[in-house]
Design a protein around this nucleic acid. Structure first.
Lengths: 298, 298
DNA sequence: TTTGTTCATATCTTAAAGATATCACGCTGC
DNA sequence: GCAGCGTGATATCTTTAAGATATGAACAAA
């Protein structure tokens, strides 16, 4: 059985006349009769009662009619759905982001904008460290990740720089320096640093350490924060000081004071990474939305 | 697009390898590649990403996959449904019956038995006069009718005799003859008869009149009953007497007494009529059930 | 009866599905 | 680095089956 048989059946069922149905399809009457006969043989039942005046549906034909219509409609729909999926209007997008990226306005605003523009895309959001995100991106478990990149981008990924954020010093409010307007990074020499594990995000980690060295001291690594968002809480209980992207400084935790860095401070880059061989229209559309949001937010 | 394209797509989507899929289908790899290419061109999107190791589904392909499965399944189902309909297991049966037939045990019992045996047949039951039932049967608005036939069966119908019921005299309980064990029909001469209109069921009507004439008198036609079931009510208010099939005598209405007819009384035949050219398996199955019920009820 | 429908049958043509042979590409293993 | 294997694509030929054309049989209406 082929869709042709079903389409021909529908024509005859609607015209109740082989000759007219054949004309409507654009073939001759004998081949149409043949095709219907073949269909009936395959089903094992006759679908039409042939009369001198035309044809009428048998009970089998009457039952087959709505099914036939549904099949043809479903085939059309399948075609349309596949095309929409190819255009990136339909499908799935798995986004990853680091804890700190979530606080950069471009991340929530671009995700929101994409969601509105493509409501039929099944969105998944997942938070993890930069390292883990890149692993999952490479394993095709994620499609696009917002990360804090290192100096060298891995060649199998494509990176889009979204922001170069200044960083700020985070101090316990009771700290002697907490009242300052701004401080040079060197003011933190001798203070224990509360930082995330280097393996979680070597890019940002190394930038902070490098900036300290440039400022003339080696940072003392103290308490390790399991998540970048928990740094503030550890500082509040006076476990040390830190340097965080200014986006993170939005988290106003009682007992923590943020102070601008005077002079050349470290810069936290935020990028969107995708697989270099990525062809999917969904991801392309998402990249376009994110870059549009970047321009808007300037 | 043909079902062939969809079947081939499914094979490749399941094997993720053109060569193996082709082997599974039983054709060569080049024609399979051609068919998939044709399908992709028709849809307007590529469904597979060809790799040196095999193939993988694009987003469009992933969306198309469940649709393709559904289409193939629906086609199989449509075939099976049509076959079941041809076997008379599926479809519709429109049954008609006269008011008096409903009280003959064979009618409810055969309908019930058919309903149990073929639960997926959509049954319609309709009560009307014999004349109207035959009209509707001829117009293909009904498929099988239980009627009280005349002497000559119309040639376009096929009749199955189901029962030859004796008839009984129906009297108001206050009537002087109401106490008798049995009465000859001639006892009713001079009494006004409560009968249904002749046009409603000329067969039964004429039998009653003929029986009266044979008993030596011309029945006086009195009150006309709109339905055979309302004859009893009209007799109860003493509008006359009547002669009814003994099945009807089951309706015990206060104020009505039924008395057996002594000697040669009229006989009420009950038949099942269908169209002579009827081919439908549903109707054939129903006839078989009714005839089986007839044997059982003896 | 004749004429004009209907659909079925028979034969031929043609389009397209499929077979066969070959190629280019990329991975794997020596 | 290069041979060997497995992948899908391309090119050409064959065969199947869809469709065209001509005709026939059955029935209805004029």
């Amino acid at each position: 059985m082929e869709l042709r048989h079903i389409r021909y059946f529908l024509a005859v069922a609607e015209e109740l006349n082989f000759t007219r149905a054949a004309r409507r399809i654009g073939i001759g009457q004998p081949p149409l009769s043949n095709q219907i006969r073949d269909l009936e043989e395959e089903i094992g039942a006759s679908l039409f009662r042939r009369m001198p005046h035309g044809a009428e549906l048998t009970q089998a034909g009457q039952v087959f009619l709505p099914e036939a219509r549904a099949i043809v409609a479903k085939a059309e729909q399948a075609k349309a759905l596949a095309l929409r999926a190819a255009r990136g209007e339909l499908g799935r997008l798995r986004i990853g982001f680091t804890g700190s990226a979530a606080f950069s306005p471009i991340v929530p605003s671009s995700v929101r904008s994409f969601r509105r523009a493509y409501p039929e895309i099944d969105l998944t959001l997942e938070e993890a460290y930069t390292t883990r995100l890149l692993e999952r991106l490479g394993a095709e478990e994620l499609d696009a990740v917002f990360i804090r990149p290192g100096h060298a981008d891995p060649p199998s990924f494509r990176s889009h720089t979204l922001a170069e954020e200044a960083m700020m010093i985070a101090l316990p409010s009771g700290h002697p320096l907490a009242g300052a307007e701004s401080l040079p990074l060197s003011a933190l020499s001798g203070e224990p640093f509360v930082l995330f594990p280097r393996t979680a995000g070597p890019g940002l980690f190394d930038r902070i350490v490098a900036a300290c060295r440039q400022a003339g001291f080696e940072p003392i690594l103290g308490q390790v924060a399991p998540q970048i968002t928990s740094i503030a809480n550890l500082i509040a209980v006076e476990l040390g000081v830190s340097v965080v992207p200014s986006a993170i400084a939005q988290i106003r935790v009682p007992g923590v004071t943020y102070i601008a860095i005077a002079g050349d401070g470290p810069v936290a880059r935020l990028t969107l990474a995708t697989r270099r061989e990525e062809r999917s229209a969904v991801v392309q559309n998402f990249i376009a939305r994110v870059l549009a949001a970047k321009v808007e937010l300037v």
